[in-house]
Every structure is written in structure tokens, then in C-alpha cells.
Nucleic acid binder design. Structure first.
Lengths: 200, 200
DNA sequence: GTCTATAGATTGATAGAC
DNA sequence: GTCTATCAATCTATAGAC
């Protein structure tokens, strides 16, 4: 696991380029230049470009699951864990400002292209959603957990898109604060038995 | 104005395809097929593909301004006008579900490509932001008007991204309801002199 | 103003030597 | 497993006839 082979090197280079330039805008030449192999050598490891995309997504799914496990291990409370999620916007701001959210932008591109791999890429979103959903359930919001996780997913996506377009870090910090405040009012409501499913 | 020339036909076809497939993924052949001209004929009207993009963005800016004027004319109150903005998500759901938000997805793509036209495309966002800002000022929220318009911009962007990825119309309707409720609580607070700049 | 023909580069993909 | 050589298609862009 994690062994450095040509195959994994291709996947990692493709992962980076698909994120930074987009899937369509990335060519075999671009990847070959990074991995230092010839273009012809690709086809020993992958039959088509789509197969590389498939491997990249699968790899991202594994990495994402590892990330979520880390958050599970390090976050003491569900509130703290969700806060961790919200704070990716700040922690990864350098990348997000330049290339947007890796999950959101990939899905958007594949939806537009009606690409067969879009359902696969959607699983990245679903992973976060399921994890968030579980955290909200732990906060005692069983009924609204799905809506709440979708809501938070959308909030973070929107902030990434708008902040990246305007290149506005101050806005990100402000919105992260708003989401954390919202979360706190939420966790408090949970511990006091109050209901707060509506607006935020 | 609005005269049907080859030039305007190219712009309209390019506009549609840049939205539906993305800028990079659209070729001259694709546009030529719609406009029914030869590929060589493009260069009588535009020197480069980037010039077509520039013309498309300029055209979108004009159309957007017209849309905002319509909302100004038809909406009796700032609250009603903002509601109009929020409801594009439902009104244009067919397109948004298939291709995302035309403003957000174009900006995201051009940011990734570090394209020289990105600042031009950003003006589309700025148009909506300025207009929203003005509406919030009319609601008596002078100090927070910029933050509020950016916040609403991000909310709608996030909903478009996530709903398009999941192809979930129900989620859109739910989030539109939440945003409208938030707006109402806002307008009420304004008329009763209360402050509500924080969380939503 | 529109066309055909074509340049020159690049694309994804293949074949076969080593 | 990696290479070179190459294919056919496509790309943006140009030149020049009509």
C-alpha cells in the first residue's frame, strides 16, 4: 500500500492536474511531463484517459475516507468534528482560491460533459454527506440530519466558489465564522432540547 | 440592436455551448455546426477563440443588466426583488441541474485556467452583488449590505453546485424556502428596527 | 462575407522493438 | 515495463479564391 510505482505516480500526477486545470484541459503530455515517462507508456497501465479518471476518483475516495477517520479520531465531540469540516475552507485556502473545491469542481465539470464517471465522482460528495449526517445525528437531530448535512455541504461549496472567483480570503473567514456560530447555536439547542431545523 | 448577423449568431451559439459544455471543451467545429458556417469564416469576425469568449461575456453582461432592470421594474419592494433573485434556482432548474450556474461555472473554469478573461467574467458576479447590495441597503442594512449580498450569492452558488451534482430538485426547493424565510426575518427586523446581521 | 484548402501543432491511442 | 515511431483525428488559425 502506497508503494511508488509508475501507476501510482500517474494517478497522483493526474489527480493534481485534473484538480488544477480540469479533466478535459489535462492531456497525456501534461501528465507524462511530470511523471517523466513517454506518452506511449500510459497504455500499459491504463487503456483510456477515462480509466485514469476512474483511478483518480477511487484514490480520492480512499484519501477522503482516511481524512474522515482522522477527524473521527481527533475530534472529541460531533460539534468539534463538524467544525473541522468547515475549517477546511481556511486550512486549504491556498488551493481553493486558485482551483476551487476539488470535489465540487470535478463534479460540475463531469455533469456538464455528461461523463460516465460523474456518478463515481458523486461518491466523494456522498462520503462527506454521510459523515456529516452521522455527526448531526449524534447531535440529536435524527429527523433533519440529511437536510442539515446537505445544507452545510452547499454552504461550503458556495463559499468556495464565490471566494475563489473574487479571490477574497476575508469573506471566507467571515463565512466560516457564521457557519461555526450556526453550528454552536445548534449544538446548544440540542443539549437544551430545543428544536432548530429551520433557518440559519 | 439585436440584429441577426453572423457575428451575433456565433456569439449566441458560443454562449450556449460555453455554458453547456464549458469553454475549453467547446470547439470551433461545434459552433460552426450550429451556425451553419465553415470553420474558416470565424476569423473574419473574431481573431481568436478568446475574442469570442470576450464577446460572449460582454453579451451576458448586457443581458444580465436587462434582467436586473426587469426585476427593478416588476418587484414592488426590495424584499420581493431579492426573492426574485433567489427563485432563479427554481425557475431555471432545468438548465441548472444539467449545466450548473452559468456565472459560477464559467468563473470556476476561467480561474482554473488562469484565463485572461476571468476578471471580465467576474463582472457578472459583481453585477449581481452590486444589485443585491443596493436592495439590502434599501432594507436599511447599509453597514452589512456587502456582506449580506456576498452571503446570499454564496448560498445560491452552493445550492446550484450541490443540487446539480446530486440532481436533487427537492433540495433546491427546500433551500430556496430557507433563504426566503431568512430574507423575511430580515425584512421584518428592518421594519421593526431590530438588528440581525449575524447568523442566518 | 463566405467559402475551400491547408498549415502546424496536439490530441488520444496503437504497434512493435528492446 | 519502457521506449520510439506512428496513426488518424481534431484543434486553432491562416491564405487566398470567389
Amino acid at each position: 500500500m502506497g508503494k511508488i510505482t509508475t501507476r501510482t505516480a500517474i494517478i497522483e500526477a493526474a489527480d493534481r492536474l485534473f484538480y488544477q486545470r480540469g479533466f478535459e484541459a489535462t492531456s497525456f503530455s501534461d501528465i507524462a511531463e511530470i511523471v517523466k515517462i513517454s506518452r506511449g507508456n500510459f497504455y500499459h497501465h491504463f487503456k483510456t484517459k477515462d480509466e485514469i479518471l476512474d483511478a483518480v476518483i477511487s484514490n480520492r475516495l480512499v484519501m477522503t475516507q482516511q481524512l474522515l477517520h482522522t477527524w473521527d479520531a481527533e475530534g472529541a465531540t460531533p460539534e468539534e468534528r463538524i467544525r473541522r469540516f468547515i475549517h477546511i475552507l481556511i486550512a486549504n485556502w491556498d488551493k481553493i482560491s486558485a482551483f476551487g473545491c476539488p470535489v465540487g469542481t470535478l463534479n460540475t465539470e463531469l455533469v456538464k460533459l455528461e461523463h460516465a464517471e460523474q456518478p463515481h465522482a458523486l461518491k466523494l460528495f456522498s462520503l462527506f454527506r454521510s459523515w456529516l449526517c452521522h455527526q448531526f445525528e449524534l447531535l440529536g437531530h435524527d429527523a433533519a440530519a440529511v437536510e442539515l448535512s446537505m445544507h452545510l455541504l452547499a454552504r461550503t461549496q458556495g463559499v468556495a466558489t464565490v471566494a475563489s472567483a473574487f479571490n477574497d480570503e476575508k469573506f471566507v473567514r467571515h463565512e466560516v465564522q457564521l457557519m461555526c456560530d450556526w453550528l454552536t447555536s445548534f449544538a446548544d439547542a440540542a443539549s437544551s432540547g430545543e428544536k432548530n431545523v429551520g433557518n440559519h
